[in-house]
């Protein structure tokens, strides 16, 4: 394993409290399709050497397109996937090898909010059962009815009417269902919440409701979020830091304003320019710069050099020969590109 001590320094001048979550050199490999029918499965590197720290009470926005490994990273932090390399520390404790009952207990501290509020709630369970279930399975209450008071409290917390407690999920709108999902995640009073594209399946008009709620909850309860998103439009409002993933690599990480105002990696710039703006003055000039080739988002990319080079207009000889390290640049900006700082 590479020595990371010099590659990763605390972004702020020595924070007083240790980070709640530390990820060091995390790698995840999947078995891809084999050669032919009987060939051995090809290894696909879904995540390669991911390293970051997350301070308590802060939000890390994790942005990447499909195939970037962003959801895999979320699941890896939750320890639902085997790592092929690297370590995950939660509150200073190494949770890389946690298994079985200890892993189940860990779920009290790290929770997940799902992308699709339509399929992530069991259609046959009432709101009460859904929200009380975590309390029940961790032995915090002995019956669903005993949890009623706590569930009412949680419903208030996520701004859902208390009368809804005995209803089934199908009678709720998408935004309301996502609130139920959030209440369920909060039931165990976790400290870290991984939100896996919590608003992607919602209408744009409802996204703001959920994002604002998550911000309120963070302030009120001191939660720490890893907020996964597939574009840069919503994350600005909720994140303190933003990390950009591309094909299993972290290509850039910085404070949120730095990402939006002084993006360094070419991929970040592409992502920024792709976000549609609700402003008719940003009209598409149609065809003038419509690219003729599509950068494929596949994970199976091997060979040396920068993984972004095939879609990069700046790619030079150096990019072909050697992959750029994920290194720290001026102003706490982390990026993996040979061109950063060379303007």
């Amino acid at each position: 394993m590479t020595d990371l001590s010099n590659r990763f320094e605390p972004a702020q001048p020595v924070p007083s409290a240790p980070p709640i979550l530390s990820v060091r050199g995390l790698c995840v490999t999947f078995d891809g399709p084999g050669e032919g029918l009987w060939g051995p499965p090809k290894k696909v590197q879904a995540l390669d050497n991911i390293t970051f720290d997350l301070a308590r009470g802060k939000t890390l926005g994790l942005v990447g397109e499909s195939g970037s490994g962003k959801s895999t990273l979320g699941r890896a932090i939750l320890r639902r996937l085997p790592l092929s390399n690297g370590r995950v520390f939660f509150e200073g404790k190494d949770i890389t090898a946690v298994k079985g009952e200890a892993l189940r207990r860990l779920t009290r501290n790290i929770q997940l909010i799902f992308q699709d509020p339509y399929t992530s709630l069991n259609p046959r369970m009432k709101v009460l059962e859904l929200i009380a279930e975590p309390l029940l399975v961790h032995g915090l209450v002995s019956s669903i009815d005993e949890a009623r008071d706590q569930v009412v409290e949680l419903l208030r917390l996520v701004n859902l009417p208390v009368e809804t407690i005995d209803r089934f999920p199908h009678s709720f709108s998408g935004g309301q269902r996502q609130r139920i999902g959030i209440a369920r995640a909060l039931a165990l009073k976790p400290q870290l919440i991984i939100a896996d594209e919590p608003v992607s399946a919602l209408d744009v008009s409802v996204r703001a409701q959920v994002v604002n709620l998550m911000q309120d909850l963070q302030q009120e309860l001191g939660l720490t979020y890893v907020f996964i998103a597939h574009d840069l439009s919503v994350v600005r409002h909720i994140s303190h830091d933003i990390a950009i993933l591309h094909r299993g690599h972290m290509v850039e990480m910085a404070g949120r304003d730095a990402i939006y105002e002084t993006p360094e990696h070419p991929y970040t710039k592409v992502l920024l320019s792709a976000v549609p703006e609700p402003d008719p003055s940003h009209r598409r000039n149609g065809g003038v710069n419509a690219p003729k080739t599509v950068p494929t988002q596949t994970l199976s990319f091997d060979g040396v050099g920068c993984r972004y080079r095939t879609c990069c207009d700046k790619a030079g000889g150096h990019c072909q020969r050697e992959a750029p390290p994920f290194a720290k640049h001026e102003g706490g900006h982390w990026a993996a590109c040979w061109h950063v700082g060379m303007t």
Binding site: R207, A208, Q209, V211, Q215, V234, H237, D257, V275, E277
Partner: peptide, 14 residues
């Protein structure tokens, strides 16, 4: 409520 990139506000209108 549609997020804008040039918007530095911490909260969206919902």
């Amino acid at each position: 409520s549609t997020p804008r990139l040039d918007d530095r506000r911490d909260r969206l209108v919902s």
